[in-house]
Design a protein around this nucleic acid. Structure first.
Length: 424
RNA sequence: GGAGAGGUGGCCGAGUGGUCGAAGGCGCUUGCCUGCUAAGCAAGUGUGGAGGGAUACCUCCACCGAGGGUUCGAAUCCCUCCCUCUCCGCCA
């Protein structure tokens, strides 16, 4: 969440930030007026408490020195003040709850370096790597090629689970597994990440830390009996891992990577990407998370992006890097780069990784702080990025490495993992 | 699911109604001492909020898992809940 002090001190700045994201800025006015009331009442109640404390102290002194005569009067006075305190406190409690509820719905403030724009048409292309291949034969989409090889099965997946699920067999199932290992090995051995194995079911508070809740509950799968949520990304457990903790500056940055499946209801995307395995309710991903300091977080974001890019370079998949504009930023992000891989079936670049600096937004929600060298406490900055989405990588490999005979070449980097050069 | 134990400051740990925001220890910071380091000695060292002088200061308030209750007054008594641990049961 954002700092309530920022709302208090620079309301117009915060409102403009929301407008740049296509959010309604009225929520800021609501918070502001509640906050004004809150502070006025807080002062009142503090004064009353101060009075009552003084009285209680006198009671104790008189009792100790045997002057019981004035005690009754003091006690009844204390009781009167106590009743006033109770009444103000109950008002305060209601106001505080309202403020807390509202502020959880306020998105992060975009970094000044983020281009202002309404939607993805204002995103900036930062760079490209590789050239989209020109096939000298009719290239197939993965949803044709996969089933033709007998390695992808959308029909039986639908039978088991409904739409937006995939079953894969033998070489493709193994390719999925090879990609996990390849990515995790790269990030742990060459980029300095610590591999973490995390729960896939998390509590409501965990989902709130990273920003999925309360605003996007309808996007998440929820286990009602225990009020647990299936993680939509490993970012959730990795970022919240250190919630409510105070870290030492010398231990930062922390670099975490995890492979997990990701579960998403895709409630708002009915017509989108309906064919194949581009948009699934369950997909595998290797995630990268940094817990770092405010001084260096934006430089660290560039490093994180380069780590995700390295995956695509090693796999020799053509991609481009996009910087999202304000209107396209995710809820918690202050700055985001997307990596988009070339997909012949779409005849365009398609998102395969999203790397964001969430600044102190998640740290505030999860109360993740660090002790600076001067002894003061500050919120950390958190970064997250896909390193990268495995299902879409598999699709990209299948489509970009397909051969005239309908089989699929194996990228050199994966050959040690698969032990072969051709799939199918 | 059943039974029990426990949740106190960065950490450990005392504290059962009135200068307890909290003993003591560890850690950390500073100073002294000292070839260096260590040890020793001394002092300091929680967080959050509101307000005022508005950098380094001061005042008030709150915080001993969370939320209620009793009381003039609660870390301390009562209730509810959450979490952790141990044992038993069930199960991969």
């Amino acid at each position: 969440m954002i700092d309530i002090k920022l709302v208090r001190e620079k309301p117009d700045f915060v409102k403009q930030a929301l407008l740049n994201r296509n959010y309604d800025s009225k929520i800021i006015d609501d918070i502001l007026s509640l906050d004004t009331k809150f502070r006025a009442l807080t002062n009142q109640v503090n004064q009353l408490r101060s009075q009552r404390n003084a009285i209680s102290k006198q009671v104790a002194q008189k009792k100790a020195s045997g002057q019981a005569d004035e005690v009754d009067l003091l006690m009844s006075e204390g009781k009167k003040i106590g009743e006033q305190i109770d009444s103000i406190e109950s008002q305060l409690k209601g106001i505080e709850e309202q403020i807390n509820r509202l502020i959880l719905f306020v998105p992060n403030i975009p970094d000044p370096s983020v281009p202002i724009g309404k939607d993805e048409t204002s995103n900036l292309e930062v760079r490209r790597w590789g050239e989209p291949k020109n096939f000298d034969f009719p290239a197939q989409a993965h949803w044709d090629l996969g089933p033709a090889l007998g390695l992808m099965d959308f029909d039986r997946a639908a039978k088991l689970s409904g739409s937006r699920f995939t079953v894969m067999y033998s070489a493709f199932a193994k390719l999925e597994r090879a990609l996990m290992n390849f990515m995790l090995d790269l990030h742990t051995k060459e980029h300095g990440y610590t591999e973490v194995w995390v729960p896939h079911l998390v509590k409501r508070s965990t989902m709130t830390t990273t920003g999925q809740l309360p605003k996007f509950e309808e996007e998440a799968y929820r286990i009602e009996a225990d009020d647990l949520f299936l993680i939509p990304t490993a970012e959730v457990p990795l970022v919240a891992l250190r919630s409510e903790e105070i870290l030492e500056e010398k231990d930062l940055p922390l670099l975490y990577t995890a492979y997990t499946p990701c579960y998403r209801r895709e409630a708002g995307s009915y017509g989108k990407d309906v064919r194949g395995m581009i948009r699934q309710h369950q997909f595998d991903k290797v995630e990268l998370v940094w817990i770092t300091t405010p001084e260096r977080s934006f430089e660290d974001l560039e490093r994180l992006v380069s780590h995700a890019e390295e995956v695509l370079k090693r796999l020799e998949l053509p991609y481009r890097v996009i910087q999202l504009c304000t209107g396209d930023l995710g809820f918690g992000a202050a700055k985001t780069y997307d990596l988009e891989v070339w997909l012949p079936s779409y005849n365009c670049y398609k998102e395969i990784s999203s790397c964001s600096n969430d600044t102190d937004f998640q740290a505030r929600r999860g109360n993740i702080r660090y002790r600076r060298k001067d002894g003061k406490l500050s919120f950390v900055h958190t970064l997250n990025g896909s390193g990268v989405a495995i299902g879409r990588t598999l699709v990209a490999i299948v489509e970009n490495y397909q051969r005239p005979d309908g089989r699929v070449n194996v990228p050199k980097a994966l050959q040690p993992y698969l032990g072969c050069e051709v799939l199918g």
